[in-house]
């Protein structure tokens, strides 16, 4: 255990991440208030994805994990994306 190196994040960096996340939340709520119609869905999901990635990278410490863990997480999201695409092969072309 003691031989392994762990990256210790500072309290400040966690605080900074929170500020980013809160601003993104404000952004997406604000955009929703503008009633942009069709784009609003895309914007909301895009902002959510950025927030999700931030949580994964910093709070969940992915940035400091092994390459394998990163690949694993990326592959799992890719798999899910493929499932959505193949499912919509049916619903979009009916």
């Amino acid at each position: 255990m003691s031989t392994e190196k762990h990256h210790i994040s500072t309290y400040m960096s966690h605080g900074a991440v929170l500020v980013i996340l809160l601003s993104l939340t404000a952004l997406s709520v604000g955009m929703a208030e503008l009633h942009l119609g069709a784009i609003s869905v895309a914007v909301a999901l895009l902002v959510a994805s950025v927030k999700g990635t931030t949580v994964l990278t910093y709070f969940m410490h992915l940035k400091y994990e092994s390459l394998f863990t990163k690949i694993m997480v990326a592959a799992v999201f890719l798999m899910y994306a493929l499932v959505i695409i193949f499912l919509f092969f049916d619903y979009l072309f009916r």
């Binding site: 493929l82 499932v83 193949f86 092969f89 049916d90 009916r94």
Partner: peptide, 22 residues
């Protein structure tokens, strides 16, 4: 094998492209 599920549904009314693909 994860992406071939649609072949159980060829007669369930899924789209043409979906059938072709699966």
């Amino acid at each position: 094998g994860y992406f071939v599920w649609g072949h159980h549904m060829f007669t369930s009314g899924i789209s043409y492209w979906s059938k072709w693909f699966f």
